[in-house]
Simulated assay, not measured.
Amino acid sequence: MIDPDRVLVPTLGRPHEDEALSYALETFPDAELTLLVVVTPLDAPLSEGGVLERDEQRTTQARASAEELLESVADPDATDRVRIELVEGRPGTVVPRYTSESGIDHVVMAGDRTRLNGFIRRFLGRDIATTVVERTAKPVTVLE
Score class of each variant (00 low, 15 high):
27 T>A: 15
77 D>V: 06
122 R>W: 12
28 F>K: 01
23 Y>G: 04
144 E>T: 10
140 V>Y: 04
93 T>K: 07
20 A>W: 00
77 D>A: 15
103 G>W: 06
24 A>V: 03
120 I>M: 14
50 G>D: 07
105 D>Q: 05
44 A>M: 03
26 E>R: 13
144 E>P: 14
68 E>F: 03
133 V>C: 11
126 R>L: 06
5 D>R: 15
114 T>D: 14
44 A>F: 10
47 S>M: 04
23 Y>M: 10
11 T>S: 10
44 A>K: 05
68 E>Q: 14
33 L>C: 09
91 P>K: 03
21 L>F: 01
26 E>P: 00
25 L>T: 08
31 A>Y: 12
118 G>V: 03
59 T>K: 12
8 L>K: 02
67 E>F: 00
56 E>P: 01
76 P>R: 14
46 L>A: 12
56 E>Q: 12
124 L>H: 08
46 L>E: 12
47 S>H: 10
12 L>Q: 12
89 G>H: 11
103 G>I: 09
32 E>S: 15
133 V>M: 13
49 G>A: 11
136 T>G: 06
126 R>E: 15
28 F>D: 00
37 V>H: 02
117 N>A: 08
50 G>I: 05
109 M>H: 02
13 G>A: 09
6 R>P: 00
3 D>F: 11
79 T>N: 05
118 G>F: 03
133 V>K: 04
123 F>C: 03
64 A>D: 14
52 L>C: 02
8 L>I: 10
91 P>G: 07
132 V>R: 00
8 L>A: 08
23 Y>D: 07
19 E>K: 12
87 V>S: 08
143 L>A: 04
121 R>W: 01
70 L>F: 00
12 L>H: 06
1 M>A: 13
21 L>I: 05
39 V>H: 02
127 D>F: 09
64 A>V: 06
85 E>T: 10
109 M>I: 05
127 D>G: 11
22 S>Y: 03
49 G>K: 01
94 V>F: 09
60 T>S: 15
60 T>G: 06
15 P>K: 09
44 A>Q: 02
78 A>M: 07
133 V>Y: 08
10 P>F: 00
72 S>H: 12
13 G>V: 05
48 E>C: 01
17 E>F: 07
39 V>I: 09
32 E>G: 09
37 V>N: 04
34 T>C: 10
58 R>H: 03
118 G>Y: 02
117 N>P: 06
76 P>V: 13
84 I>R: 05
